[in-house]
Design a protein around this nucleic acid. Sequence first.
DNA 1: AGGGAATCATGGACGGGGTCCAGGAACGCC
DNA 2: GGCGTTCCTGGACCCCGTCCATGATTCCCT
Lengths: 181, 181
Amino acid sequence: MAPGVRGRPRSTSVSDLEEAAVELFLEQGYESTSIDDIARRAGISRSAFFGYVGAKSDLLWHDVDQALGRIRLVDGMDRAGVAEAIAGALEPWGDRVPWMLRETAIMGTDAVLRQSAFERLEPLVARVERALRVREGRAALPVAAALVAAVVSGVVEWSQDGRSRGPASDAALRAARTAAG
Amino acid sequence: MAPGVRGRPRSTSVSDLEEAAVELFLEQGYESTSIDDIARRAGISRSAFFGYVGAKSDLLWHDVDQALGRIRLVDGMDRAGVAEAIAGALEPWGDRVPWMLRETAIMGTDAVLRQSAFERLEPLVARVERALRVREGRAALPVAAALVAAVVSGVVEWSQDGRSRGPASDAALRAARTAAG
DNA sequence: AGGGAATCATGGACGGGGTCCAGGAACGCC
DNA sequence: GGCGTTCCTGGACCCCGTCCATGATTCCCT
């Protein structure tokens, strides 16, 4: 596939690394799993690991990062439009929680997720602010921050709902509405 | 002072460490300043450093942590009440921006602040949720998250306002109101 | 077939953060 | 002065993330 690409082909993928990591995290926990462990199980060296991923915690965000990449915002949107755009990007998830957002207790990843959450979400806040600026003016930033925070907290609650969990996009929309009320 | 305390007295304080750190951060930047550098300038060993502070980034949050500790929430508050409580805790700041929130460009601390922001703010979200639960019911979490996010973004904007910056508490209140509207 | 050129993998070195611990130093109390 | 308590020190340790020289694998062109 992909003709015209020269050079040595990659020997694995981020998804494979993610898979290997989840296994190890479930077995030994996040902190007790070194990058060496993950790389070894995926069949590459520690150095190569950093050719796929910039940090160990990136593996936890792989699914979320892809969802973030699917969000399509347009300048001039209103709050509801932004909420729908974000919810739409979550539709591929359906009612299935990404591996890394589940079993956080077993893996002991809560602390790490908190550390990297702001870093991950802040770019989205910036994008939302830009989209809202036409309608909200100079107050766009707090509005954007509040909107994103509401949606995120909604998704987090959703991911912790044991059973009877609907689609992620519904949870996102619901949270956005309740916060706006 | 403080009679009845046995044992060797502490040889410095967190505030002293913060002061030494700010100097070094302004001179060399955050990343280029090692914990050894800070400890040396403060006249203690690297090991002792961790007896005052759990991590290098804690120094950046010293002022904010104290403000967080001043916030008094009561179960049954409404959104406006919570906003006022938070704003009240910021009054000691007046219109002066804490050292570590200023000159973040010079110190190169933006990345570190982002990393530790969620970690710092999430406990506040939890407290706000608890206070709001009486009135907001099960939707308290997204509301709390949105409220905190709005206030924080407002304070961040305030801290970057070059001149004609009013008190921090005003900025916090303003942001909370615009996000709620 | 053979020689670039490009891309990736490897192993190792390095600096730094954070933890841990054994020993010593400074205090109050008896 | 002895004792318990609290703190400081120096060092060892593990791991993360960066960097680099070297080698491996592929495509393309001649």
